[in-house]
């Protein structure tokens, strides 16, 4: 694993974000400095409302930084960067499309697939089917999202975020609304996909076990205004298993992160 290479893919230096206009300003994120190497999996943890999602929107260019800079590939981000995959806690699948057509959506929008889409539809459908199968949803392509369980919807959501092979994957509490068993199952689904494809990932979560299980580096954020108060590399070997999450080495890291957040609250 090479978390930080010579030229990081994403670089935030002193990035801050202020919401609102004159009078009612809210500092959502203060002075965030971090860099993400290509293929690195980072997790951002912290109490709710601490600006984790803001951090994510800064990196993707959905929101411009108020001060400081955000660079991707060494270039300053001013508008939404292309070729990002996103998944939220709410699966936001389109109810009027089948699962398959939902996952085809990025290919209809992102170049170069957009140009080739009509002529090569069959090829893309095959790609979707393969990806669905790899997350355990083989044969569910014809179902509408509302015919699927919450866990299956979230699997489809992951597929949609990954189908166009984005360089960067943004996950905003993607498993937050799922039951514990489904959540842990999806951790391993995500880890397998990542081990196979090595997309650069930013995972926002408040589940510390989830962060430690999945990430190469965990960043802990303070309460609003959000600041990064700890950077913790996780050097546990991969693939990590659910068994590992109960072993001392793993549990110690979780406790360390928890202590850090508690101290901040005290």
């Amino acid at each position: 694993m090479t978390p930080e290479m010579a030229a990081p893919l994403v670089e935030l230096s002193g990035a801050s974000l202020v919401y609102g206009r004159e009078g009612e300003k809210t500092l959502a994120l203060a002075d965030a400095t971090l860099s993400i190497g290509k293929g690195e999996f980072i997790a951002v943890v912290g109490p709710s409302g601490c600006g984790k999602s803001t951090l994510m929107k800064l990196v993707t260019g959905l929101l411009p930084a108020t001060s400081g800079s955000v660079k991707v590939h060494g270039e300053v981000v001013r508008k939404p960067i292309k070729g990002v995959g996103m998944a939220f806690q709410n699966a936001t699948l389109m109810p009027w499309r089948t699962t398959r057509d939902n996952i085809l959506l990025p290919l209809e929008v992102v170049e170069p697939h957009k140009r080739r889409f009509r002529a090569n539809r069959a090829e893309y459908v095959a790609k979707v089917e393969a990806l669905l199968a790899s997350v355990g949803l083989g044969g569910f392509g014809d179902k509408f999202p509302w015919q699927l369980s919450g866990g299956m919807q979230q699997r489809s959501n992951l597929c949609r975020a990954l189908i166009h092979e984005p360089e960067i994957l943004m996950l905003d509490e993607p498993f937050g609304a799922l039951d514990a068993f489904t959540r842990e199952e999806l951790w391993s689904v995500l880890q397998n996909l990542w081990l196979e494809r090595r997309f650069t990932t930013v995972l926002v979560t408040h589940d510390l076990r989830e962060a430690v299980y999945l990430a190469d580096t965990v960043y802990v954020m303070s309460r609003r205004p959000g600041r990064i108060i700890l950077k913790r590399p996780i050097e546990l070997p991969r693939p990590r298993t659910l068994e590992d999450t109960f072993k001392p080495g793993f549990v110690d890291i979780v406790h360390e992160l928890r202590d850090c957040i508690h101290k901040e609250h005290a």
């Binding site: 929107k57 959905l62 960067i81 292309k82 990002v84 995959g85 939220f88 936001t92 389109m94 959506l105």
Partner: peptide, 22 residues
């Protein structure tokens, strides 16, 4: 949903595409 809009925008969709697809 704002999330749906974010998904589309982060894919690089134009406003026209957001209108026709969503």
């Amino acid at each position: 949903e704002p999330e749906m809009r974010d998904v589309m925008r982060s894919l690089g969709a134009s406003n026209y595409e957001i209108l026709t697809k969503v």
